[in-house]
Design a protein around this nucleic acid. Structure first.
Length: 204
DNA sequence: GCGACAG
DNA sequence: ATCTTGTCGC
């Protein structure tokens, strides 16, 4: 599927809606809840939301993460009534050992523009970006630039941004900064995180 | 062989 | 991902 990913874009510069996706797991590991929240890209208000609950379809194996979370995320995506113009994934896109992380997989399967925003690295080397919000440094692996280490808050640990599908790296970083007016992680990720935890608790 | 390893 | 404990800062 890797050749099917559009790593150029540039994708929408002013999307009307942006979606956040996340998954929560039961402590026992036998249940999970996936959530998608769709935000108005200008006001960051949630305009649609959907969840999918079930059992993990695959064990957690670094590099094969999509096989674990993608099925439940697709379930949730199908329940949306609003078609988001961009998917902001909790995990990497191009910044993957075989250059096809969750964000690429989700983008190709849905056909929607997608980007990956990881909290910790999976592959690559980088220099720490300057302390100011907006500062960044290239994430490199095997002689190629696979993403960007982006500071979304002054003096706070940066996030790892990479292209998923139908988006340029420049635009991906601009979208992430637009989604982080107050906290380290995008508002899309934060609302989806709360929703999947809530859905998991409700699905007792 | 050893260490690393998105969530 | 999940859980715990303690510290720092607004």
């Amino acid at each position: 599927m890797r050749p099917l990913a559009d790593l150029v874009g540039p994708g929408p510069t002013a999307p009307a809606t942006v979606a956040g996706l996340d998954v929560a797991y039961a402590e026992s590991g036998d249940r999970l809840a996936a959530a998608v929240t769709v935000l108005d890209a200008r006001t960051l208000a949630v305009v649609d939301r959907a969840v999918g609950v079930g059992r993990p379809a695959f064990p957690y194996v670094p590099g094969l993460f999509a096989f674990r979370e993608l099925p439940a995320l697709l379930d949730a995506l199908e329940k949306l009534t609003v078609r988001p113009e961009l998917l902001v994934c909790d995990g990497h896109g191009l910044a993957h050992p075989r250059r096809f992380g969750l964000a690429c997989h989700l983008g190709v399967v849905t056909g929607l523009p997608a980007i990956g925003v990881g909290k910790t690295p999976l592959v690559g080397e980088w220099d720490p970006p300057a302390a100011r919000r907006g500062a960044w440094s290239p994430l490199r692996d095997g002689g190629e630039v696979i993403g960007r280490v982006l500071r979304t808050r002054d003096g706070v640990k940066p996030v790892f941004v990479s292209v998923g599908h139908r988006m340029s790296l420049d635009n991906a970083c601009a979208r992430v900064l637009a989604l982080t007016p107050k906290y380290r992680l995008p508002e899309t990720t934060r609302t989806a995180d709360r929703l999947c935890r809530e859905a998991l608790a409700a699905a007792c």
